[in-house]
Design a protein around this nucleic acid. Structure first.
Length: 510
RNA sequence: GGCGGCAUAGCCAAGUGGUAAGGCCGAGGUCUGCAAAACCUCUAUCCCCAGUCCGAUUCUGGGUGCCGCCUCCA
């Protein structure tokens, strides 16, 4: 049983799909007028995990995400840069994909754009005009009439009276009601336009999502999501339009999922906050952040807070997440190594009956524990996609594994083949959790447990081998001054040396 | 001004009507020539007041603080 918090009811509801075994999702995508910043990334990472979880739970998932490629800001940017609106959109869509790929966000089933859905948009506006929910002005503008529908404001929990009382914006006198919004804007000089029954123009904001969801998912679909800043007016207006056009107030999305904001100093991260952009120069867009830290680390950080809560983002937290990720990765490495080597019989020795029993019981405990944690993991995910809690279960397993590994290395556990079989099962469980969270899909850039560094060249490896063997000679002669000096100087050169029971290891400092 | 949300340890962050997961930091320990790493152990009564209840951090009301939306915004 999966429970989800529905913004419409403001409560957790039991999820029942419209079609058995299938889930349809529409998530509002981006307006590609510049490169995505970290705040933009959150809903897509969130939905990516939801998709993975639902798919793993046996649902056939259809996921649609749009690009609003016809928009004021895009036109403005294009005019400023002396390029076409399409150039701007294409460039930023490419940037979007690049960032999302690095965050392991899987591709949507379709990415409709406004420019490619124009016919459907015009058709929907025409329906609204025909049914009397919209009106056309002399200049060709078309507005939606909010008074024509019952319960306008039901998603954002406000009434037309509330909104009038708190109105802050100068009202356009041509509108029948101050809250009426544009479905179609007549063409202005220097702007792209499309032919329509009302003359040349382009769609207003909101209508594209209604038209696209109808086109790709039909009159009813399961989930609709996006950032909580979209609740009003965007999603409210989508509901009004769609349900009016379809003629069914139960149509359109069944569950509304909204994610909280990423904050910086308790303030919403936003491109329009000039001061914040300035303060975070060089560490603001996803691309900038990914230039310094691995995508999987950033992804993990984004999922360590429940999606509905605000998430404070700064470099310190990324570093913390990197440490956390490193431990998860190391435990996986330990588990994989141990399982494969024991399974292949590499470690087999005569353990004696007593030790054999202890070892099997210890490994058996590990597999029981991993199964318990896997169940907890699914419970957490089933409770409104609580990735923050789910990740701690994965981490607990990582700790169990590391503890086992430590004892193994210390000789407290003797290897027998049966361990390998059991540990392979534990490894599969570990990977199952990781795959839903969506990590370990990229080469792990973590520290080495063996004596050479992954990111190094053969030459560096050879040099390090020489240096470390010289240092080892000094250590053997108890010449600590020389040994420590070598270690200290390597450290300042960006290489960390650690002495272990198996000899010295080195890695590049992070 | 209208509407909505949040308030848990130094920091981050789950959660529950029966005295609160996890991470970071910190303290102690094992190991070690030292260091590091690793592993083990320890560290909160949940913003304030009132109410309901046998019992509230968790429910209700009030207060305070913070945030968001109402204009573009993930």
């Amino acid at each position: 049983m999966i429970k989800v918090f529905n913004t419409m009811s403001r409560t957790k509801e039991i999820f029942k799909p419209l079609k058995k075994g299938e889930v349809s999702i529409y998530c509002c995508g981006v307006t590609p007028y510049n490169a995505p910043h970290i705040g933009n990334a959150r809903p897509f990472v969130t939905w990516d995990v939801i998709r993975r979880f639902l798919a793993k739970s046996g649902y056939k998932v259809t996921y649609i995400q749009n690009f609003t490629d016809v928009d004021d800001k895009i036109i403005k940017t294009a005019n400023e840069q002396g390029v076409t609106w399409k150039d701007v959109a294409e460039k930023n869509i490419a940037a979007y994909f690049k960032s999302m790929d690095a965050l392991n966000v899987r591709r949507a089933d379709f990415y409709p754009s406004v420019s490619e859905t124009m016919d459907d948009i015009i058709k929907m506006i025409q329906t609204l005009v025909d049914k009397g929910f919209a009106y056309v002005l002399d200049n060709g503008d078309v507005f939606y009439s909010v008074e024509k529908i019952k319960n306008y404001g039901k998603l954002s929990k406000r009434t037309l009276d509330d909104m009038l009382a708190g109105a802050r914006v100068a009202v356009d006198e041509r509108k029948h009601h101050p809250m009426d919004f544009a479905l179609w804007k007549s063409a202005k000089p220097g702007e792209p336009s499309w032919e329509s029954p009302w003359g040349k123009g382009r769609p207003g904001w909101h209508i594209e999502c209604s038209a696209m969801s109808l086109k790709y998912l039909g009159e009813k679909f399961d989930f609709h999501g996006g950032g909580s800043d979209l609740i009003f007016p965007h999603h409210e207006n989508e509901i009004a339009q769609s349900q009016a056009a379809i003629g069914d107030e139960n149509s359109f999305a069944q569950y509304w999922i909204h994610n909280g904001f990423i904050t910086d100093g308790n303030e919403k991260v936003s491109k329009s906050n000039k001061e914040m952009v300035k303060r975070n120069k060089g560490f603001f867009t996803v691309e900038e952040i990914l230039a310094k830290y691995p995508g999987e680390v950033v992804r993990l950080l984004l999922l360590q807070t429940h999606y509905r809560n605000p998430l404070e983002f700064n470099e310190e937290r990324v570093i913390e997440a990197q440490e956390f990720f490193g431990k998860l990765a190391k435990a996986y490495w330990q588990l994989d190594t141990l399982a494969r080597k024991i399974h292949a019989g590499e470690f087999i020795k005569d353990t004696g009956e007593k030790n054999f029993a202890i070892t099997v019981s210890r490994a058996g405990g590990l597999v029981e524990e991993s199964e318990r944690l896997l169940a907890n993991f699914y419970d957490a995910m089933s409770d409104d996609f609580n990735t923050a809690l789910a990740i701690t279960h994965l981490f607990e397993l990582a700790q169990e594994v590391s503890s086992y590994y430590d004892d193994f290395n210390a000789g407290k556990i003797l290897p027998v083949t049966i361990d390998g079989d059991i540990l392979l099962r534990v490894r599969d469980i570990y990977l199952e959790m990781a795959s839903i969270i969506g990590i370990f899909e990229q080469p792990v850039p973590v520290e080495k447990v063996e004596e050479k560094s992954e990111a190094s060249s053969e030459l560096v490896d050879a040099l390090m081998k020489i240096i470390l063997s010289l240092r080892q000679e000094a250590r053997a002669a108890k010449n600590w001054a020389v040994a420590d000096k070598i270690r200290d100087e390597l450290k300042s050169a960006g290489i960390t040396v650690e002495d272990t029971a198996q000899g010295a290891t080195w890695k590049r400092s992070l």
